[in-house]
Nucleic acid binder design. Sequence first.
DNA 1: ATTTGTGAAAATATTCACAGCG
DNA 2: CGCTGTGAATATTTTCACAAAT
Lengths: 252, 252
Amino acid sequence: MSGDRPRIRAAGRTRGVPEATVARLPVYLRALHALADAGHDTVSSEELAVAAGVNSAKLRKDLSHLGSYGTRGVGYEVALLVDQISRALGLTQRWAVVLIGVGNLGHALAGYAGFASRGFRIAALFDADAERVGERIAGLDVRHIDDLDHVVAEEQVCIGVISTPADAAQEVADRLVEAGVTSILNFAPCVLQVPDGVDVRKVDLALELQILSFHEQRKADSAGLNGGRNPAAGTVTPLPAPRVDAREVVGR
Amino acid sequence: MSGDRPRIRAAGRTRGVPEATVARLPVYLRALHALADAGHDTVSSEELAVAAGVNSAKLRKDLSHLGSYGTRGVGYEVALLVDQISRALGLTQRWAVVLIGVGNLGHALAGYAGFASRGFRIAALFDADAERVGERIAGLDVRHIDDLDHVVAEEQVCIGVISTPADAAQEVADRLVEAGVTSILNFAPCVLQVPDGVDVRKVDLALELQILSFHEQRKADSAGLNGGRNPAAGTVTPLPAPRVDAREVVGR
DNA sequence: ATTTGTGAAAATATTCACAGCG
DNA sequence: CGCTGTGAATATTTTCACAAAT
């Protein structure tokens, strides 16, 4: 709430690798690990694409942004590709992460093995609630948020995970940024304002359900009453009843 | 445009409202509720856009897909817009949801107030582990997964949330689909194969961190090779040393 | 024989910029 | 005036389709 001009992280192209591609690389990486475990030494773009849930043209285009590492007529060497993608994602180093907010969700996140196994180390847990400070979770002591600066500097933390209630999230974000954190993963259901140069990604559970709700409604509309009749092209589904004040069930 | 191509395969198009717009509607909705709570009756596209973290042109374009509900020279009526967006998202009805997997994360999800407050009702919790069946979480008894069919039919459940370990997720998805569920929110770190007509959205915690890692690496690289706090910045570790000690919910 | 890598085309998404309404 | 709604201009992403490589 300072007078500063808020800026949201710009989307788009990131030096050579398109953002959409970056978002898929972790999926490829996981699929490759599974293939490696299953004993594959090489894999074709088609096989890997199926495992990753994309089509093979997209996969090849994505990989082409990292440079090309396949052999025509054969496919990709799994180990090599794992290495290339890991490197591209910056996973050759182990990033230190702090997690703020050890409530319901934060507690689960602290215990989530997927972080540690993928190159992220939780350096510390924080909470603003003095009651929780000192509590031991997943092998870590919960510290008071006032120690944040110290820990971030000490442990060279670049990434912060926010799992506080929404009304605390912006202040926590401000403190993270001030402490020097430049990437934030936000689980609180709110939009964070951060300065340029700080990346924010949001994970929003209810939002995902709402998107599913949209599609579910679509399916119900077109399958149900009218035997699947759909509105003609150019005609957006007409919104019924311009004014209704039955707001009791409205999502929040 | 002309030529109705019988496009059936789902890749993300939605008749009428672009997928990218759908994904933002919940954000607008939340911002609008906040504005309403703060006493605003009307809001300009610029104000709402800032609150939602987008630019105003995008916001207006998005809203135009729902039909137009603003007043030129004034802005939008908050209550009306809430109603319109809620309707578009299908939130005028309360969807029943089942949650499968009450481990670490599932437990937290079951207790997440954001679901209930946004129009979703958890109809039942399931787990495959007989040890957990009967346990009471967030006011619900954990049931055995063999009861799934029954509950889905009985309670007209359309949406399933999967928070099992990765290696169980596909089978759970199959059972959900067979039971009649047509939308799945998947927290397990794996790609699900589902038939056409079933929507899947994925929430992947480690994936988000990996995307941040990518950007963090870029910042480290470009910020004068060593401006910062990044571990081993400038020293690109030669090999990732595929160390894997995943236990719990990990699918790598 | 296969399968990659990639220009070119098509489809989506975002932003611009301004006419037109209140 | 101020602000919405929207065509037109850009930008990004996906898909096609085939030459080149092994």
